[in-house]
């Protein structure tokens, strides 16, 4: 469980985020949605300790994020920011292997190697594992980074806009992978998504944010309501029943 208590963050006196109070349950996929500047990424980065909060407390699996050792946190929680990675000339396998760092400190054991292979296969990167990252397409590279993060085998996985810069096919593929990681590997995944319909299709829960506050948090059916979404995005949004569940039309 991820618990936020009265978490606040202020940027340059103008933008205020919080107080955020939320309990994100274990297992499944939780999506953070909301307009730009709503504080989705800020909240995610604070949970992932990439950004310091000004006030409040964040606990992940009963571990205080602000007080625990970084290496201990790295065994229960990991975070990946949206793709703006500098392109290093590492092979896919080397990159994914760094996911084992919190355990092996770089001395990969046989078990580590097996785990690395597992995640490379899981993300369909088997044929690419010895290719350098700068020889891959953006989508393949993104998959390699997500594979690295999952290879860390943490219970909690935070992803900031993992669908950024992916075309529809790659985006669907990525969400399918995440869905499988949640269902088959039992991970708790929190993602920032821009597309409400992706969130509705693949999440278990949605947290909608607006103006630095949590506007609503609930199951997909609870959030996919025309009045609520219209209010959050300040645009008329209708909900229709599609073949895979509820669809937002705007």
């Amino acid at each position: 469980m991820i618990t936020l208590q009265n978490v606040r963050k202020t940027y340059g006196g103008e933008v205020r985020i919080g107080p955020l109070n939320i309990e994100i349950p274990k297992a499944g996929i939780t999506s953070l949605i909301g307009p730009n500047g709503a504080g989705k990424s800020t909240m995610l980065l604070m949970i992932g300790r990439l950004l310091k909060m000004d006030e409040g407390r964040i606990r992940v699996a009963n571990m205080d994020i602000a007080r625990s050792k970084s290496n201990d946190i790295a065994k229960i929680l990991t975070i990946l920011r949206q793709e703006n990675h500098f392109i290093t000339r590492l092979t896919v396998r080397q990159l994914v292997g760094f996911g084992r760092f919190p355990y092996s400190k770089g001395r990969l054991t046989k078990e580590d190697e097996a785990i690395i292979s597992k995640y490379i296969d899981f993300f369909g990167l088997t044929d690419l594992e010895h290719r350098f990252l700068d020889e891959l397409s953006g989508g393949q590279r993104q998959r390699a980074y997500v594979a690295m993060v999952l290879c860390q085998e943490t219970e909690y996985v935070l992803l900031d806009e993992p669908l950024n810069n992916l075309d529809i096919a790659r985006a669907v593929q990525m969400m399918e992978h995440l869905r499988r990681a949640a269902d088959e590997l039992g991970r708790t995944i929190v993602v920032v998504l821009h597309d409400i319909n992706f969130a509705a299709r693949y999440s278990d829960r949605i947290c909608a944010m607006k103006n630095g506050q949590i506007a609503a948090f609930g199951t997909v059916d609870e959030i996919m309501r025309p009045d609520l979404l219209t209010d959050i995005f300040e645009t008329r949004i209708e909900i229709i029943d599609g073949p895979y569940g509820k669809l937002a039309v705007y």
């Binding site: 990439l50 065994k75 760094f98 919190p102 860390q152």
Partner: peptide, 21 residues
């Protein structure tokens, strides 16, 4: 420190996520 430095080359976010300072 070779592995740590290579991870540092992946950026501050990745290094922190992997538990490094």
């Amino acid at each position: 420190y070779a592995n740590r430095l290579t991870i540092a080359g992946l950026g501050e976010d990745v290094a922190t996520a992997l538990g490094l300072h």
